[in-house]
Amino acid sequence: MTLTNKSRSRKPLVALMGEFSAGKSTLANLLLGEALSPIQATATQVPPILYRHGEAAAFRTRLDGTQEPLDPGDLRSATPGTTKMITIQAEADFLRACDLVDMPGTSDPNMPADTWDSLLPEVDCVLWCTPATQAWRQSEAALWERVAQPLRDRSLLVVTRMDKILTERDRLRVLRRVQQSVDGLFLDVLPAMLLPALKAADDPQVLEETGVSALIDRLAEVIDADAAARQQTVRLVEAAAQPLTRTEPSLVQDAPESGAGQEMRVMPRRVVMDGARTQRPRHEAGGRA
């Protein structure tokens, strides 16, 4: 499948990949600042979902390449049997800098093994999610080794679910082991606690502690480099210079919805989330990836 101009902007394409239930959708929601992606404990048989910047809308691309509108609340009606890809348009700031595609999880016995083969050539950077509790198994390693070297060199391994590893020492040991086994296969290995970050999405301190700030920084560097390389005009929002407007820790649910005077709330340094429009990810929605 190739992405037609109609569905693709010229922005860099970031792909979320990994085995099913590795945290891809949680990470998508975190990056987008909205619970746009369906999250489930079991394997979700959903075709690739492309997120791009624009007025809120959703449509699906049928197997024959034709498109039709889709009810965003009913993404499940678009199964891989009938749908090549789902496209979701949202005004998330993250999408100003790049397009994001959430790939179907690998190692799902109910999905053909090569659903993502055809999309991969268009991808500029992969965020491969691997859960800390069972990090980096052969079924992942073998797939990743088949990805072309230039793409691997621009891609990040995100060790998710770090919050399930209870001590600092153990977290470090898992990370060291993973770093050792993927030596040279990724640009970088980054630990992340996605759920705690999602629960407190606008608390910079939490974002720092959960590793999400570092992840976004690193991603921004990659995207910037990529964008520069393609002489893209689309840049990351220059919000980095803005002072952080919120510093006190607070749970999302408790946070007052921002009014007119506070349109821009700053996510760590470079990626801005629009507080007014964002439907905040709730705990239930982010139940499990």
């Binding site: 085995e19 239930s21 404990a41 190692s107 799902d108 016995p109 069972q134 052969q138 079924s139 679910r161």
Partner: peptide, 12 residues
Amino acid sequence: LSAQQALSSVDM
């Protein structure tokens, strides 16, 4: 099996 990812293709 691990509840986080029950029944992957390797389990099968």
